[in-house]
Amino acid sequence: MPIFKKKPFGHILYIKKWIIRILGIVSHGRYRRFNKLQIEGSEIIRDLPETNVLFVSNHQTYFADVAAMLHVFNAALKGRVDSLKNIGYIWHPKLNVYFVAASETMKSGLLPKIFAYAGSVSIQRTWRSKGQNVNRQVKMSDISNIKKALDDGWVITFPQGTTTPFKPIRRGTAHIIKTYKPVVVPIVIDGFRRAFDKKGLLIKKRNVLQSMVIKKPMKIDYENETIDEIVKRIEIEIEQDPSSLKVITPKEYKRLEDELNKQRKFWK
């Protein structure tokens, strides 16, 4: 591979590799020492095709969620099953993994710009900007950039478009699935909101149980399933459907989250 090869967004792969290595080394302790990340289903990663894979997940912080996924993906590809032991897996990272993020977030400082170079597909949110509700048309260049990333590799997206739990799934994700027919892999995460600040840069609390469950690819009838049906299925798969609350409301969940975390000691 030429040392200064660029693809597909003009990023130099040699620089991108070193950014992922450095960020990986710096962040590794957040999932192995300060807090424990319990992983389930990472063996699925090894059987995925090289391109046109879309990961859909709930969202709890701006950056810690994605960083954890990059760790888990690279560890799994190097033969570690449900483990981040031995950080050597990050030395030759998978470079064609991308994540969809709001452009205003990725331009909000030096560190987000560095993260963006590591694999962001930055889009303009159509429903919110600078903390205010807006109503904008979808930029076709954003859609084409997601297609470009899928053609090159794997894409992580958070279809709720917010870190607030149990918010509706954005229909744009279903449109992308219907149009480009990717392999869709659901991921469910928990504990990141308790462990980190909203941006996912600062450790807010130590010894928090974090979890990541990677589910089997969804079986989707791309031709016959409707947008609404796909939206509903994603909502259920990433456990953001109201039925996932059982008898606990979001308000009660927030009030009881510390106690609920203690009750989940069975992960250890």
Rank of each mutant, 00 (worst) to 15 (best):
Y62L: 08
V26E: 09
T61R: 01
D65T: 00
I177C: 02
M106S: 04
I176H: 05
G161D: 01
Y222G: 06
L95F: 00
K204H: 08
I39S: 00
A116P: 00
Q60S: 04
G172K: 00
K246N: 14
N52G: 04
K139S: 07
T126D: 07
G200K: 01
I44T: 12
F115E: 02
S103L: 10
E50I: 08
V231D: 15
L13K: 10
I39Y: 01
D258P: 03
P49S: 05
S211K: 15
D197F: 10
M1Q: 14
E239F: 05
D241W: 06
N207E: 13
K7E: 13
D190Q: 13
Q240W: 05
W127L: 09
I234H: 04
Q132N: 14
K204V: 08
R125N: 03
K181D: 07
S103P: 01
P165E: 02
S122V: 04
V185M: 03
R128Q: 12
K7C: 09
K36A: 09
I45L: 06
F196A: 02
R171Q: 15
S83G: 07
I169R: 09
V213C: 09
Y180D: 02
I25M: 08
P93V: 04
L201R: 07
I156E: 07
P165S: 02
I187E: 12
F196D: 04
R21K: 10
L77E: 11
R136G: 06
K130I: 02
V26H: 07
K148H: 07
I234V: 06
T105S: 10
T51K: 15
I25P: 04
V208W: 11
H59I: 06
Y253P: 04
K198F: 14
S243G: 08
Y14G: 10
Y89A: 05
I15Y: 12
I90Y: 05
I146W: 11
V81T: 13
R46S: 13
T105H: 12
T51P: 05
K130M: 09
K199N: 13
E50H: 14
D151M: 10
L95N: 10
V26R: 08
G161C: 00
T164S: 11
K265I: 14
K7V: 09
Q240Y: 03
I236W: 10
G29A: 00
P250Q: 01
V155S: 03
R233W: 09
G161V: 06
I236Y: 12
I230E: 00
Y98T: 05
A76S: 07
W91F: 11
I44G: 09
A64G: 04
L110I: 15
R233Q: 15
G41Q: 05
K85G: 09
S57I: 10
M69D: 12
R33D: 11
I203G: 06
V213D: 11
I123R: 03
G161Y: 03
S108N: 00
E50Y: 10
L202K: 15
I227E: 15
V155C: 04
I187Q: 14
K7Q: 12
Q60T: 01
M106Y: 02
R46N: 15
K268P: 11
S120P: 01
K216L: 03
I19K: 12
E50D: 15
K262I: 06
I19W: 09
N261V: 11
D47R: 11
G88C: 05
